[in-house]
Design a protein around this nucleic acid. Structure first.
Lengths: 224, 224
DNA sequence: GCGCCGTAGACTGTAGGCGAAAGACAATGG
DNA sequence: CCATTGTCTTTCGCCTACAGTCTACGGCGC
């Protein structure tokens, strides 16, 4: 036990740079999700290393991790290539996402307390304001936070981890298409929160399923 | 087109050793799942490297991958430790597994053809024979193959990949306890196949959910 | 005897280098 | 003119070496 008697967060815990590989990982993920690195592009280790000012080793480890999470394909003796999303895969990801989010909503409805509901409503209001102000970026960001909060309320770390991965990839596939999906989405969010507040597991599940299925339909009805 | 006129599989396609990191990965995974490496144990890179007759690099990359898949915890500047399963985590994994398997069953019911049903029934018969012969290992192996087949019929690669990961971890947590869960399990399998054969999505989902929930209940009712 | 500090050991994190495989391209033969 | 083959460059896979950091233990002061 610490004898200093200092409150937990008093000392800023002096921020360490952290392992280099992690920072490289985040940098590359950023470059991929922002489309700075295009799907199918060949990622040359030495190039990236030079560009980031580090050695090849951390780059390799970052690529390794990106590979297991499905962001890049690691062809043996040939190197890393940015993963190319296909129609089929996008559809499958959306299916899985629906599944995970629906379960999260159910668990959230089972666990939620009054404070949690309040937090959800705050987020929802924030999102609605963003939509009203036509601030698309803020709306998207708030949307992510709302879903994350629901996931947190579900209290299942394994589920949360899987959902986080799937979610980020879904967003990658889908951002260029559906930035306009605003108003309807937040109406559905209200409904979801109501269901959670009433602790109606079945309804929460159904609402969330319908919600994510809508985004999926929209994905397929695009480019027309 | 090849002008040699050789039949497709005539040349054994000479099996390459494959990337060393992958073999190290598999070796370590084997050691972990068989409990040769105990939970919480500190994995020293140089030690493993020397023991496997390779350098530290492939070992590092294998550990990296094992970390993202939840088999080891990678504490910065301290090294890799075999992940320690907790009650809570096991429960959460089983929840997720139930979810994924149930969805797989539903999709399988939607897609299955006559040939597929036959394959499932063959596997089921094989499993029942193994149970009758008290061959626990064979029964467990066949069980895995049956579930894998259902997953394959679902035709969703993303789902399959996630389920495979979750499944292996579940099995790791749960094998020491439940090797005896034999007969009842295969009765349920029969039911599941029947539901899939009738293309009854709802029933397939329910049966599979009940099936995996049983194994979960059993997990909690152990050590008594 | 108890607690703190300093030092030493061990292990990880990072860098650089060598051998080998895969792909590209030009030269050659039919 | 096309197919084939040899060579050549690029890039990966792996190994070795060095620097930074954490842990453990022994000595010292109180």
């Amino acid at each position: 036990m610490l004898s200093t008697g200092l409150p937990q967060g008093a000392v800023p815990r002096l921020e360490r740079p952290g392992p280099l590989r992690d920072r490289v990982y985040e940098a590359l993920l950023e470059l991929i999700t922002t489309r700075a690195l295009k799907p199918g592009q060949h990622l040359v280790e030495s190039e990236l290393a030079g560009h980031l000012g580090v050695s090849r080793q951390p780059v390799r480890e970052a690529l390794q991790r990106l590979s297991t999470e499905g962001w890049v394909d690691l062809r043996p003796a040939q190197g890393a290539f940015v993963h190319e999303p296909t129609e089929e895969e996008a559809d499958q990801l959306l299916t899985v996402r629906t599944l995970l989010e629906a379960e999260a909503a159910r668990l959230a409805a089972a666990n939620a307390g009054a404070a949690a509901i309040g937090a959800l409503e705050d987020l929802c209001a924030e999102g609605e304001r963003a939509v009203a102000a036509d601030d698309v970026d803020a709306a998207v960001a708030t949307n992510a936070r709302l879903h994350a909060k629901v996931m947190e309320l579900a209290g299942n770390r394994v589920l949360a981890e899987l959902a986080a991965q799937v979610d980020r990839r879904v967003r990658w596939y889908y951002t260029p298409v559906a930035r306009q999906r605003g108003r309807q989405s937040w109406i559905e969010h209200r409904e979801l929160i109501a269901a959670i507040a009433e602790r109606d597991e079945q309804r929460a599940t159904d609402v969330m399923r319908a919600h994510t299925e809508h985004t999926r339909k929209m994905y397929h009805d695009r480019e027309k």
